[in-house]
């Protein structure tokens, strides 16, 4: 069974200051951080934002090993963008391979982008690592609520996310079972060319969809049987309340943002305008 013990999202359950923050505060801080990271345009900005990120990781008690593992899938993208900058930025050459010329400004620009990506991924993955999916959707619902006036279905979006998260392991288990059942009938999911492989998925996908629709039907019925009628007037078992810690974290974020803006004004872009 491929799905045994699967962790939805990547929630890392330990007790820490960051874990105990209100999910809304964490979502807002993450959003501010992302914007600030792109406002910062030199290495001093990154020193400020990076320090903030390191502080957050330390307080979250998430081992660096886990965060570095999370970086693995984007290593290629990082190397690729860094290389593009290295070779495509004009300026004094470091070395040359055929028509490709690596330039000093390119190297700095490449490093700059690479570091920005690393800080971005580390900090934003902290959000899903320290917040359980349920908390996350609860927080998102609250944040989206003001927009329901202009027609954003906040509760429905949150409910859909909750249901989707709930059914990922179930569907994986089901897919595993159907796959085995078809393999018992001589189906082959592993060999053949692209077209044959795509075709061999039909015996898996048709039953999977049929059962997903059936489940959806049954779930809708079960929810109605328990008088579900959307978000209006619905109360929560876990009320979200902002505490002192949340205000402190938000305050720190604002100070960090101000510092980054200061470094931007004080030091200017990493490669001064006009030198390219």
């Amino acid at each position: 069974m491929i799905s045994r013990g699967i962790v939805v999202g990547q929630y890392y359950p330990v007790n820490s200051l960051v874990h105990s923050l209100d999910p809304r505060a964490k979502i807002v801080i993450s959003m501010i951080f992302m914007v600030v990271l792109f406002v910062g345009n030199n290495f001093y900005s990154f020193a400020v934002a990076g320090t903030f990120a390191v502080l957050a990781v330390t307080l979250s008690k998430i081992p660096w090993k886990v965060l570095i593992r999370g970086l693995r899938p984007i290593v290629f993208i990082m190397l690729f963008t860094t290389a593009l900058h290295l070779f495509l930025t004009p300026g004094p050459a470091i070395f040359q391979i055929g028509p490709l010329k690596a330039s000093w400004p390119g190297l700095i620009q490449g490093l700059f982008i690479g570091i920005r990506l690393i800080i971005l991924i580390v900090f934003t993955s902290l959000l899903t690592l320290t917040t359980s999916p349920i908390e996350l959707t609860d927080g998102l619902e609250d944040i989206l609520k003001p927009f329901s006036r202009i027609g954003v279905p906040a509760h429905e979006i949150a409910m859909m996310m909750t249901i989707a998260l709930r059914f990922i392991p179930t569907l994986l288990e089901e897919a595993d079972r159907i796959m085995k059942a078809q393999m018992s009938r001589g189906a082959d999911f592993e060999s053949g060319n692209m077209i044959q492989r795509a075709k061999s998925l039909v015996p898996l996908l048709v039953p999977l969809f049929v059962s997903a629709f059936r489940r959806a039907d049954e779930l809708a019925m079960a929810m109605e049987a328990r008088c579900y009628r959307g978000g209006e007037g619905r109360t929560r078992m876990r009320q979200l309340r902002l505490s002192g810690g949340d205000y402190l974290a938000l305050g720190l974020t604002i100070i960090m943002s101000a510092l980054v803006i200061y470094t931007r004004i004080r030091f200017g872009p990493v490669i001064p305008r006009g030198t390219l």
Binding site: K180, S184, P207
Partner: peptide
Amino acid sequence: RRKIGLVFQYPEQQVFEETVYDDIAFGPRN
């Protein structure tokens, strides 16, 4: 698997073809 046939629990959840004939024929065709 040709010698040892395994019928899963709720095997009706594995049918997918358009006709009963095609579904039963899935194994031998494979």
